[in-house]
C-alpha cells in the first residue's frame, strides 16, 4: 500500500466514523423498517408499566430496562 493509498484509506475511515453511516448501521433512507411503530424499543409503554409493576411486586429483581418498578410498598 502506498502512502497515498494509506492516507485515503485512513481518511475514509475517519470520515465514516466521524460524520455518519458507521459500517454497522444503516443509511438514513433505509430507516423505513425501524420507523414502523411496533419497532420502537418500548412500543407499548402501558404493557411495560403493568409488567414491571407486577414483576417488581412478585420477584426480587426489577428494572434493567429503564427506570421502572419502584415507588410501591408491595416490595
Amino acid at each position: 500500500m502506498s502512502l497515498q493509498q494509506l492516507r485515503t484509506a485512513l481518511l475514509a475511515l475517519a470520515l465514516i466514523s466521524l460524520a455518519g453511516c458507521s459500517s454497522l448501521g444503516i443509511k438514513p433512507w433505509e430507516r423505513d423498517v425501524l420507523a414502523r411503530q411496533e419497532m420502537a424499543l418500548d412500543a407499548y409503554p402501558i404493557d411495560t408499566a403493568f409488567d414491571e409493576h407486577i414483576y417488581f411486586s412478585k420477584e426480587a429483581a426489577s428494572g434493567g430496562r429503564g427506570f421502572g418498578g419502584g415507588g410501591c410498598g408491595c416490595n
Binding site: 438514513p28 433512507w29 430507516r31 423505513d32 420507523a35
Partner: peptide, 10 residues
C-alpha cells in the same frame, strides 16, 4: 424529495 420518500416509507 428525500423527505417525502422517508415520510411515505414509514
Amino acid at each position: 424529495v428525500d423527505r417525502v420518500l422517508g415520510l411515505l416509507t414509514a
